[in-house]
């Protein structure tokens, strides 16, 4: 029986997530894994925005910031339980994306890049400057989600790293499932069509602004949830989460891995998250290596790492 590509992708993802801990030399790797999955969630949103709809954003870290600070602030000031704060942040991000997206998404290419960049920077500026709420540049503590306590009451003792590994994996796989659903759906086809030719998309009845906006909002929610989980895992959050470099990181991970496919983007997130964590020896050269990798991959493997690797493998099989 032929497995549909969607289920094949999910199966690969589940197997890798489940098998990886078998090779972990120490508990530290659970944290690295969790970080990979948290970034994996954000880049899956990038796949929908950049890969499907062909729209760039250099400001999505702003939404991650909203998600993260919602988890820190909503439980304290609004008496919302920490779990619900994730949903609260997602709703807030979606609302902001909805309002700002309409005018911004009329822009194309670099202009869209700069407008979104400005949006992200404005959000991070607020987080940085409103210190009486956000703690300013030092960051702020995040109330405990209470998951470990809950598990302990049920008689399960799990390390924090291990717990977050599985929680983040679960959310990432759920996110991947949604994005893969979208790909082969009326909305997904409309997005990919307007990516290919906006003019043609309009003449076949696609409401281009509406669909772009949907992609923008959905990807903002992904970024927000990613930021929320990061905050909950670290229990401390700083404005860096909303910074320009984090936005760049999201786009780079996705495009480097292969932004047209969910698996590719998550592959990119894996590499760019794991390398700096594992190669601490090279800490000094981290920036240079990162910059070099970005340039080289874009020049020599413009489709991204995973699609290029797959193409090469396929080519070899056919010979």
């Amino acid at each position: 029986m032929q497995l549909k590509p969607k289920y094949l992708s999910l199966l690969i993802l589940v197997l890798l997530v489940a098998a990886a801990p078998l090779f972990f030399p120490s508990g530290f790797y659970y944290r690295v894994g969790a970080l990979i999955f948290i970034n994996g969630i954000a880049v899956t949103g990038m796949v929908i925005l950049i890969g499907y709809a062909g729209q760039i954003s250099l400001g999505h870290a702003g939404f991650a910031g909203i998600g993260a600070y919602s988890c820190a602030l909503a439980p304290v000031y609004l008496n919302i339980p920490p779990v619900a704060a994730i949903a609260f942040g997602a709703a807030l991000s979606a609302a902001l994306a909805w309002v700002v997206g309409r005018p911004i998404l009329k822009l194309h290419g670099y202009y869209l890049g700069v407008a979104t960049l400005g949006l992200g920077i404005l959000i991070s500026m607020v987080l940085l400057n409103e210190a009486q709420w956000t703690g300013g540049p030092d960051g702020i503590a995040v109330p405990d989600l209470g998951l470990r306590g809950l598990l302990r009451d049920m008689g399960l003792r799990v390390g924090a790293g291990e717990l977050w590994y599985w929680v983040a994996a679960l959310v990432m796989i759920l996110g991947a499932w949604l994005a893969l659903n979208l790909f082969d759906s009326p909305t997904g086809r409309a997005l990919r069509a307007l990516h290919g030719s906006e003019v043609a998309a309009r003449t076949i009845g696609i409401d281009v602004p509406r669909h772009k906006l949907h992609a923008f909002v959905v990807s903002a929610v992904y970024a927000s949830v990613s930021g929320s989980l990061l905050a909950q895992m670290n229990r401390l959050i700083t404005p860096d989460v909303a910074g320009f470099m984090h936005s760049v990181q999201m786009v780079t991970m996705a495009v480097l891995g292969g932004v047209s496919s969910v698996l590719g983007a998550i592959f990119g997130a894996t590499i760019l998250t794991a390398l700096p964590q594992l190669l601490t020896v090279f800490h000094q050269y981290e920036h240079m290596v990162l910059g070099l990798v970005m340039i080289l991959v874009m020049i020599f493997l413009p489709d991204g790492l995973l699609p290029s690797i797959l193409k090469r493998l396929k080519g070899r099989n056919e010979e």
């Binding site: 659903n181 759906s185 086809r189 990919r192």
Partner: peptide, 16 residues
Amino acid sequence: VGHHLRERAHVLPDLF
């Protein structure tokens, strides 16, 4: 995609 108008694309049902 030429059938887009009859498909009535809605993002939430499509995601799920």
